[in-house]
């Protein structure tokens, strides 16, 4: 259990998908203009990462690996299968949410399909493979990574809301400033790298 909490903390803070690996930057920069929309997208990312990570783990270990049901090394199909799982999961989640909670669907609405091409999701699955996690660890890694991404997008959205009132050079306004801010936040997050999660 302690091991799982370690992985959660590590993936949320020390190896933050957004601010340490800079994954999912497209939607991170495009959807962080207000805190409200950033909140919706962040929640959806936690949800999809938490679901796709265990499914991709099962696929990787029982379908693609040499000890799986086909007894052959099919890892060259990994990318295609992972992205197919992510795309179909997002589509499925969209349909389920639409059916059971129309109000949540309306607030997430356009962000759900966007998640398919959020590289934090596919990147998370690929990191999971390269780090050789077991099933429960991959669940924890998925949830932790999603939570870290959620924190990061909320933080930048809040800063961007405030910086509207500052005197920024015209050519730097908007996108340019968002890049600079993300760089500074990345620097700040690097100081978390010294944390030893096993101390908790």
């Amino acid at each position: 259990m302690g091991e799982l909490i370690n992985i959660f903390i590590k993936s949320a803070f020390i190896e933050n998908l957004a601010l340490s690996y800079f994954l999912g930057m497209c939607s991170y920069l495009a959807v962080s203009k207000t805190v409200k929309t950033a909140f919706g997208l962040g929640l959806a990312v936690i949800f999809v990462l938490g679901i796709t990570m265990p499914i991709n783990w099962l696929i990787n270990n029982y379908l693609l690996s040499e000890s799986g049901i086909f007894q052959t090394d099919l890892t060259f199909l990994r990318l295609i299968l992972f992205i197919a799982v992510i795309a179909s999961m997002v589509q499925l989640v969209e349909m389920v949410v639409e059916k059971f909670s129309p109000s949540l669907y309306n607030s997430l609405g356009i962000f759900l399909p966007l998640i398919t091409v959020n590289c934090a999701i596919l990147g998370g699955s690929l990191f999971m493979v390269s780090k050789e996690y077991n099933f429960m660890e991959s669940v924890s890694f998925g949830l932790g990574g999603g939570f870290g991404w959620f924190l990061a997008i909320i933080a930048i959205a809040a800063i961007r809301e405030k910086i509207k009132y500052s005197q920024v050079p015209p050519a730097l306004r908007g996108l340019g400033m968002a890049f600079m801010l993300t760089g500074l936040m990345g620097l700040a997050f690097m100081s978390l790298m010294g944390i030893d999660p096993s101390a908790f």
Binding site: F22, P170, L172, G176, F179, M180, G183, L187, M190
Partner: peptide, 19 residues
């Protein structure tokens, strides 16, 4: 060499491009 510098460099490129 670190990641954040890429952010600063791209930010500067955007700045120059828009100016």
């Amino acid at each position: 060499v670190l990641f954040p510098s890429a952010m600063f460099v791209i930010g500067a490129i955007i700045w120059a491009h828009r100016a």
